[in-house]
Design a protein around this nucleic acid. Structure first.
Length: 819
RNA sequence: GCCGCGGUGGCGGAACUGGCAGACGCAGCAGACUCAAAAUCUGCCGAUGGCAACAUCGUGGGGGUUCGAUUCCCUUCCGCGGCACCA
């Protein structure tokens, strides 16, 4: 028999579903379920990673719908970004046209997959209807002091004369021209995400539906450490330098101090001294290095003495002040007390510059303790620490902190690794920052009623120099919202992560022209019950989205501060052990697979080949196998219908009948559990395959129950519906003649059918399998043991051995322990 | 360096709470059908020994707990991912 006509079937049902608004969703009284896949960047081509992502989401959506939920399953486009602008520079196509065309092309490639999206809720972040609200959010942040501008060091390519995002710096080089990337001070916009650091960290504990791995990554990223700030007066000056330390217990061992070269005091302290020139050239040298070069762990520690001393406020000791490449200006206070005895970095530096090393903590057992090449960073017993000598360092930690506070020279504090979010981009294709600079009024936000600040079209893309928006006269000049005099617009646009930090909220009320969204609607749908996407977004996107949602909760725009209840991070699609990529030439295009085997086979394969969290190794033969399986089901159903198998002699209730009934209902149970709780689609599908194999065997028997065959085939069709939607819809139409398989309720297994009268148990001797016997499932322990001891095979093995004990687990095993 | 995840047949993977290791699929081998091939259907398919029934070994390596360990504990090796001069 020929293969099933997948092409006709898929086109037919896609058209049917679309024309009948099959996937349209509105709020109703049913329990809601919001399933979301991370929206794509419209590159113009979908790849297997997309197919995998959306297939997983579609199974969840269709399954939940069959379970009676009101399911929201939207799709949209993360449509701002650099590739569109590069295309403009390279080919002279306007980013808007390029993006719109790509969205259409990607939609044309997505539709053949049969995904159950409600396209009425589509959003594109580059559309003014959308970015108007991104700007509106910016203004709310600004009002709250959560958006602010500051001078800071940013990546700078001297050849392109432009700022680069961290992602655009590849191995310390500019991704476009391969020049060495340096640093430059620029005035940039920031979001104050650090205000939410503690909340974002604490609330990770309230995300039981997130993978542990992602939670750990976020915690580490936020990077909380507790310690103290201590003020060290500068000798012969009225200034003090505040250092941050996590080890106040080592303060007696501080033999020098290091400032970050960019620390504001440095320039002041050396001004007009003999050290000025040397310090300046050191700083200039560092500025020409990228962060990557500068912070590489293998780089040698380097620094210089700046001619000043400070006073250790606890010991009164006078210690030299250095600047060095290993102290960062934007962590802690940008200054440290260096304790070479107990910090490896400080030790390396001290050895190089011949600075004294004073050990102040020794291991508990140690007698004469000295430091050679390795710093001692563990706990221990205090030494050379005045009154604290002999104490455990953990006790001394608290006592010294107390002393610091009593003396008023410092206090307990907390430091985070998380930095504020730099959102300015010197780009065209992004959301314009709605700010006007006025000579009289300064920095003035655009009035809400004047949003959106639209992207102009009279732009030149030269690929060099400043933000392209500076080339638009119509954009640049705008009246000050406060005094009306001519001002200048902000010409930077926002990082595209801003756009994607709230799109899931807009889906809940995508067409609203009055408001960002209606709170009632958003509260009805939020949280996202299941979010699905690549683990590469574990930190940035997911953290930013959490941050935004928290702020929106504080603004009373939403009720729940956490956006994503459950998170599934799917693995990559590999071929020959490597990620599919053009440069490796190992790309399999979804289009060619759909043409050859159809979308249902493609979907089935990506779900069957591996559990969703793991990487998936592509296999052409594996795809073929899935296609064969669908054909096998097809033939089974068609043959049963044509040959009247449904009507053959019924209700004989043989052993085989009972077994098939058991198989049918146990398969329902297995598939339900696999899909619902664990997202193990691979085992769900293999369970259905087993049932199909069983049906093939059963139908060859002499005496079969036609009704049971029908039940079996129907069950297979219904259970496969979320996985292979077109295939099952067609089979449903053929075998049942009416309705849609997708409008059915998800089947429930019969409890009686999965009760087995007989079970197979194993007989072990010393834990090793010796024989298997089939017994009634309600047999007592005693009877089981009797049976085991009467077993001929067991008797012959037991001969001449003495029995130590017998362990019997009902319905499972009998283990006889012998000597 | 620190943190996390993983290691099971020729391959992708299964074994959910400690109880038959290898479900299901792929590849391979054999048979049926066919003039023949493809497709399809059926059977076999971890290693070693044996004609066989069967025996022994086997979940990266070593050790432990247990009647019993892929599963729990210790240790070690390898692979992958994240962070990385964060004081």
């Amino acid at each position: 028999m020929a293969n099933y006509p997948f092409k006709e079937i898929e086109e037919k049902w896609q058209k049917h579903w679309m024309e009948n608004n099959h996937f349209k969703t509105v709020e109703n009284e049913k329990p809601k379920y919001y399933v979301l896949e991370m929206f794509p960047y419209p590159s113009g081509k979908i790849h297997m990673g997309h197919v995998r992502n959306y297939s997983i989401g579609d199974v969840v959506a269709r399954f939940k719908k069959m379970q009676g939920y009101n399911v929201l399953h939207p799709m949209g486009w993360d449509a701002f970004g650099l590739p569109a602008e590069n295309a403009a520079i390279k080919h002279g196509i306007h980013p808007d046209i390029w993006t719109t065309k790509n969205i259409q092309e990607m939609k044309d490639q997505l539709n053949p997959l049969g995904l159950s999206y409600d396209w009425d809720r589509e959003v594109a972040t580059c559309s003014p209807d959308y970015y108007k609200w991104t700007q509106w959010i910016f203004l709310q942040f600004y009002k709250r002091g959560l958006a602010y501008k500051k001078e800071s060091r940013v990546n700078w390519c001297p050849s392109c004369e432009t700022v680069l995002a961290n992602e655009q710096v590849v191995g310390g080089l500019c991704e476009r021209c391969d020049s060495k990337v340096g640093k430059k001070m620029l005035n940039q916009w920031y979001f104050k995400i650090t205000d939410y650091a503690e909340e974002l960290l604490q609330e990770i504990n309230n995300l039981p539906g997130w993978p542990e791995k992602v939670k750990i990554m976020q915690s580490n990223w936020i990077g909380k450490s507790t310690g103290a700030e201590v003020n060290f007066p500068i000798n012969g000056s009225d200034k003090t330098i505040t250092v941050f330390t996590t080890r106040p217990d080592t303060i007696y061992g501080a033999t020098y101090m290091v400032l970050a070269p960019e620390h504001p005091y440095v320039a002041e302290l050396v001004k007009g001294t003999e050290y000025e020139e040397e310090v300046n050239s050191f700083i200039t040298k560092l500025q020409h290095m990228s962060d990557i070069e500068r912070t590489a762990t293998d780089i040698e520690k380097e620094g210089i003495f700046i001619g000043h001393y400070s006073i250790n406020p606890i010991t009164g000791r006078k210690i030299p002040i250095f600047i060095a490449n290993y102290v960062l200006v934007d962590y802690g206070t940008g200054a440290i007390m260096a304790v070479p005895g107990h910090d490896q970095r400080d030790l390396d530096f001290a050895r190089k510059y011949h600075i004294e090393v004073i050990p102040v903590i020794k291991p508990e057992e140690a007698q004469d303790f000295t430091i050679e090449k390795e710093a001692y960073s563990d706990e221990g017993i205090m030494m050379s620490s005045g009154d604290f000598n002999g104490l455990k360092s953990t006790e001394a930690y608290d006592k010294i902190l107390q002393l610091i506070e009593e003396k008023g020279v410092g206090n307990k504090t907390i430091s985070y690794r998380l930095r504020d979010w730099l959102l300015s981009r010197q780009r065209y294709w992004g959301t314009p920052i709605p700010i006007i600079y006025c000579d009289t009024c300064g920095t003035v936000p655009v009035k809400e009623e004047n949003l959106p600040v639209a992207l102009p079209t009279d732009i030149q893309f030269t690929g060099t120099g400043l933000s392209p928006l500076t080339t638009s006269e119509t954009f640049l000049n705008a009246p000050c919202p406060s005094c009306g005099k001519m001002g200048r617009r902000e010409t930077d646009t926002m990082d595209t992560f801003v756009d994607s930090s709230w799109y899931f909220l807009r889906y809940t009320d995508a067409k609203n022209t009055e408001k960002i969204f209606d709170k009632e609607k958003t509260d009805y749908w939020m949280q996202v019950d299941q979010y699905i996407g690549g683990v590469e977004h574990a930190i940035l996107h997911l953290l930013y989205a959490r941050f935004f949602t928290r702020v929106m909760k504080d603004l009373n725009l939403v009720s729940n501060p956490e956006p994503f209840k459950n998170l599934l991070t799917q693995g990559m699609v590999l071929k020959d052990g490597a990620k599919m990529s053009k440069s490796k030439g190992n790309v399999v295009s979804p289009e060619e697979i759909i043409i050859k085997y159809g979308a249902d086979t493609a979907r089935l394969f990506v779900l069957f080949a591996a559990p969703p969290e793991r990487d998936l190794e592509w296999s052409d033969q594996g795809v073929e196998g899935c296609f064969r399986f669908l054909n096998r089901v097809w033939r089974l159903a068609i043959e049963a219908l044509d040959n009247g198998l449904y009507n053959r002699k019924a209700n004989t209730t043989t052993k085989e009948d009972k077994n098939l009934k058991y198989m049918i209902h146990n398969t329902i149970k297995r598939v339900t559990e696999d899909v619902e709780g664990r997202f193990n689609f691979n085992t769900a599908i293999s369970a259905v395959m087993e049932l199909v194999n069983e049906l093939y065997k059963y139908k060859e028997l002499e005496d079969i129950d036609g009704g049971l065959v029908e039940e079996g085939i129907t069950t297979v069709i219904v259970l496969l519906a979320p996985f292979a939607p077109h295939f099952t819809e067609e089979l449903w139409a053929i075998t049942k003649g009416e309705g849609s398989v997708h409008k059915l309720s998800w089947p429930k297994y019969s409890k009686e059918a999965i009760v087995q009268d007989e079970v197979e148990v194993v007989i072990q001797i010393n834990g090793k399998l010796k024989d298997k016997i089939t017994i009634p499932s309600d047999m007592t322990k005693e009877a089981m043991e009797e049976l085991a001891f009467n077993n001929e095979k067991i008797q012959s093995i037991l001969e001449g051995k003495s029995i130590v004990k017998v362990i019997t687990v009902p319905k499972k095993l009998i283990n006889i322990v012998v000597k």
